[in-house]
Lab assay of single mutants.
Amino acid sequence: MQFKLIINGKTLKGEITIEAVDAAEAEKFFKQYANDNGIDGEWTYDDATKTFTVTE
């Protein structure tokens, strides 16, 4: 399945899409990606669109 991350950071904005087995695997990848890029904010997930959003 495809999952999307929308980044609304103070210094980094954009979107990335990955293939993952389930939402838990996608969330783990996205949170590591955000951590690696210094993004720390509020997370939301929309199951209907398979979209995670992080907002700083």
Rank of each mutant, 00 (worst) to 15 (best):
L12P: 02
T49E: 15
Q32K: 10
A26I: 01
E25S: 12
V21P: 06
A20K: 04
K13A: 12
L5W: 04
K50F: 09
F52I: 01
K31H: 10
D47F: 08
K31R: 08
I7V: 10
K10D: 03
T17E: 13
V54I: 08
I6L: 13
F3R: 00
F30T: 01
I39H: 14
T51C: 03
F3V: 02
D36I: 11
T17H: 14
D22A: 04
N35F: 13
G14Q: 12
Q32V: 15
N8W: 10
Q32E: 03
Q2L: 12
I18C: 03
A34H: 01
E19G: 02
F3A: 01
D36G: 14
D47K: 09
D22K: 03
E56W: 14
T11R: 03
Q32D: 06
E25G: 15
N35C: 04
E15I: 10
K13Q: 04
E27S: 06
L12S: 15
D40R: 08
A23V: 13
T49V: 14
F52Y: 15
W43H: 01
Y45K: 02
T53G: 03
Y45N: 01
F30V: 09
Y45F: 04
M1V: 06
M1W: 07
G14N: 07
G41H: 01
L5D: 00
N37V: 05
A48W: 15
K28D: 03
G9L: 05
T49Q: 08
Y45D: 00
V54Q: 01
K50D: 05
T55G: 04
T44S: 07
A34F: 02
G38A: 09
E27D: 04
K4R: 09
F30A: 15
E56H: 15
E19A: 05
A20V: 10
V54C: 03
F29W: 14
E42W: 15
I39M: 15
E56Y: 13
I39E: 02
Q2W: 14
E19H: 11
K28W: 07
D40I: 11
T51Y: 12
G41N: 01
T11I: 05
E25H: 10
D47N: 14
G14V: 09
L12C: 04
A23Q: 13
L12Y: 10
V54W: 02
K28V: 04
L5R: 00
D22L: 05
D40W: 03
D22F: 11
K13G: 09
T17K: 15
Q2D: 14
I39A: 10
L5K: 00
I39C: 02
Y33F: 06
A34E: 01
N35Q: 12
K4C: 02
F29R: 10
N37G: 09
V21H: 10
N35T: 06
D22C: 03
T55S: 12
N37T: 11
V21E: 05
M1K: 07
I39S: 02
T11V: 09
T55E: 05
A34Y: 09
D36Y: 12
I7R: 02
T49Y: 15
D46A: 09
Y33C: 02
K4Q: 03
I18D: 02
E56L: 09
Y33T: 04
Q2A: 12
A23E: 09
K50L: 12
M1A: 04
E15A: 10
G9S: 04
Y33R: 03
K4D: 03
A26F: 00
D46N: 12
D46G: 05
V54N: 01
T51K: 12
A24R: 02
V21L: 15
D40T: 07
E42Y: 15
I16S: 08
I6T: 11
T53A: 10
A26D: 00
A48Y: 05
L12R: 06
F29L: 06
F29V: 13
V54A: 11
G38I: 14
A20M: 05
F3P: 00
L12T: 14
Q32N: 10
Q32W: 13
T44Q: 14
L5E: 00
G14H: 14
E56V: 08
E42N: 03
A26V: 05
F29C: 02
A20D: 08
Q2H: 12
G14R: 13
Q2C: 02
Y45T: 02
K4W: 10
G9Q: 09
F52A: 01
T55Y: 07
Y45G: 01
N37S: 07
I39T: 04
I39D: 01
Q2V: 14
N37F: 06
N8D: 08
I7M: 08
I39L: 08
Q32L: 10
N8L: 09
G38H: 08
Y45M: 04
N35W: 11
Y33A: 04
T49C: 03
T49S: 08
T49F: 09
Q32G: 05
F52K: 00
A48R: 03
T17D: 08
E25V: 04
E27I: 14
A23N: 15
A48I: 15
K10Y: 13
E42G: 12
T44C: 03
G14E: 09
I16K: 14
K13W: 04
K31N: 08
D47A: 12
T51P: 00
Y45C: 01
D46S: 15
I7H: 07
I18T: 13
F29P: 01
N8V: 06
D46C: 03
L12H: 09
T11Q: 08
K28L: 07
I7G: 02
A48M: 06
T53Q: 11
E15W: 10
K50A: 07
L12M: 07
A20R: 03
N37K: 13
N8T: 11
I6D: 03
I16C: 03
E27L: 09
G9E: 09
E27N: 09
A34M: 07
M1L: 09
F52C: 01
T17S: 15
I18G: 04
A48S: 15
E56Q: 15
A23Y: 04
E27T: 14
I18P: 00
K28A: 13
G9H: 04
I39Y: 15
D47T: 13
A24M: 08
G9T: 15
V54S: 02
E19K: 03
D47V: 09
